[in-house]
Structures are given as C-alpha cells and as structure tokens.
Amino acid sequence: MKRIGLLLALAACGDPGPAEEAGPSGPPTVHVVSYPLRYFAERIGGEEVRVVFPAIEGDPAFWKPDGDAIAAFQKADLILLNGAGYASWVRHASLPESKCVDTSEAFAKDFIRIEDALAHAHGPTGKHAHGGIAFTTWLDPEQAIAQAQAIQVALLRRWPEGGFEHRFAALRADLLELARRLEAVIPKGPGVASHPVYQYMARRYAMNLRSVHWEPDEAPGADGWAELKAILKEHPARWMLWEGEPLAETARKLAELGVKSIVFDPCGNTPGEGDFLTVMNQNVTALAAAE
C-alpha cells in the first residue's frame, strides 16, 4: 500500500503541466505567431497536432522574443506565419525555412501598402509604426478562409493521414457565415478607426474609413482631438471602431461630437473569454447595435 502511495506521489510530481511543456513523444507541434492562426490550426488540426501560441503581453504583432523563445519556435514541427509583415520579429529571427508556412502568401499581391506610417508608442512594447503593409489580414473573412486553407494544405502535406479536410470545411462554413453576418451589419457612411488595423475589412465591405492612432485605455491628448476634428471636417464620421472598450470620458467626448464608439476587437491575441468566433460574433453584435 505504501508502495502504491509512493507511486501516486511520484506520478503527481511528474505532471507535465501546461501543454507547452509536453514531451517529444506527444503529437507534432505547430507554433503560430498570432491568435487567429492558433484558432484556425486548432480547429483544423484537432487532436492530431499540438498548437503552441506563446503567452504574449500586448500585441503579438510587435512582440520581441528573446533567443530562448525563438529556440522554442525552431524546435516546432511546423511554424505558421501570418505574412504581410505581421510579427516583425520574424524578419530578425533564424527560423527553419522548410518548416515555415506563410499563410497569406496566396493573396500577397492584394496586400494593402501603407504610405507615410506614423511611429507611435503605447503599452509595454514601446514605439512602433504601422508601416509597410497592413497586416491584420484575417479581418477580411475571405482572406481568413484563404489562411485557414493554407494551414490545411500545410498540415496535409506533412501528415497526409490526418483528417483535416472535413474540419477545414466546418471552419470554412463558420467563416462564411461570419462574413455573411458581418456584411449585413457594416455601418453605412463615413467612419473612423481608432487604430489603423481595419484596412482589409474596410476594403472587403467598401467601408469609408479613416484612422487615427488612439488607444482604448489612454486618453487622447489635445493633438489627438485636434487631429480627429480636422478629419471630421472633411470626413463627417458618425462612428468610431475601437480595438477595446474606450475610456468613458473619451466615449462621452466622442458622443458630444456625434461619433458613436463601437468596439470591434481584431482578436490578434488570445481573448480573455471565448474564442475567435465568439469575439467576432460579439463584434457583429456591437456593429448591429450601433445601427
């Protein structure tokens, strides 16, 4: 009996902990650089792969991993990149090319180029600029489907025996349904984005959108308000898209200017609750409520 107790105690000590700590004997690992890719890979890969998306504080697009974090990526069986310049750390990192898959390569010719990007700072990641190419590709559901398809192809190429096709079909159906619902609730007329991250969605749904560089948890300074007022003079926006719930004071001041605040979370990082589709459905609900 004593021996059984000891064995149980040893077994408890040997708990591998979170999925990231599992040994090499488990399913093949797929490392991803953003939460949408994690969601797509988990939906398509099911139990047959272990998807790893590191816990990142702030926007994964501007994450700065150290050598050890990159070493974890190097050990993956497959690395899913968003492409379009997302996760700028990839440019400076040594990753095994044969394991990397650029999920947006199929529509690279349609990338939106940003001219004269303004460098700005917020949060723990420090100064950054949304320059070069717009990278929130997944906010256009058609592009999200193309990225999911790239994942399915990559998984099938490596593990042909996996049942990935039917799971991709289910995900595709969900994304098409999301696209249909989104199209029905897109606000008409000019609008403003608090951050330049909605370009692909705006192009897909022909939204008349201009951007400022405001953060939901920071009060825009006098310059920020002056910039918005200047925009409103030539672009009479009646709504503003936010990545998160704006400060009450900011929302109130916007309302005084006749601009309604709508939270549309791009969901680049792991949401506190729910999953990618839950968050996108909340976004749809928020847009519908604003009409």
Binding site: G67, D68, A71, H92, A93, S94, L95, P96, E97, S98
Partner: peptide, 24 residues
C-alpha cells in the same frame, strides 16, 4: 545559411544554443 543546413548535415549544438537572432 538557414537552419535547414544544420538538419541536412546532422550538425548538433554541443555548447550553448542554436543561433536565433540577427547577429548571432
């Protein structure tokens, strides 16, 4: 080169770690 070279030649890091960032 790229990391694929190490796998191709069967090179193993004995001390330290594999190069990960520009300049390493």
């Amino acid at each position: 080169t790229t990391l694929d070279y190490f796998a191709f030649r069967g090179l193993r890091v004995e001390q330290g770690r594999q190069m990960a960032l520009l300049g390493e």
